[in-house]
């Protein structure tokens, strides 16, 4: 078992996800299953292999610095759970 319950709790906190005790137990098993399958990558020697992050050759893409219309303030707020004036309203951030 590579992953223990405390690892699940640590990653859940990083992920901002709250898990029930049952969910934690299930994830311990399932993530261990998946990770032990993934272990097979260690059979390959990749010391001299370059990592690949993109499937096609693209480097920086530039365009002319011309201002174009963007979504209106009104439209950006249409889906907001809570707003106040021109702001998105959230619970208290600093105690």
């Amino acid at each position: 078992m590579k992953i223990k319950k405390k690892d699940i709790e640590y990653v859940a906190n990083l992920s901002r996800i709250e898990l029930s005790e049952i969910e934690k137990e299930t994830f311990v098993h399932q993530l261990n299953d998946i990770l032990s399958y993934i272990e097979k990558l260690n059979r390959l020697n990749t010391e001299t292999v370059k990592p690949m992050s993109c499937a096609i050759d693209v480097t920086n893409i530039f365009r002319e610095d011309i201002v174009e219309p963007s979504i209106s303030l009104e439209d950006t707020q249409l889906n907001a759970p809570a707003i106040k004036g021109v702001f998105f309203k959230v619970p208290k951030v600093i105690e």
Binding site: S15, R16, I17, E18, L19, T76, N79, A80, P81, A82, F88, V90, P91, K92, V93, E95
Partner: peptide, 24 residues
């Protein structure tokens, strides 16, 4: 994260609590 669009949990207890419950 429940801030700008999408679901937000009801009656969150502070901002971190809002993120966690919204996502869970």
């Amino acid at each position: 994260d429940g801030v700008r669009y999408g679901y937000r949990t009801s009656k969150p207890n502070g901002i971190i609590d809002m993120y966690c419950h919204t996502r869970s």
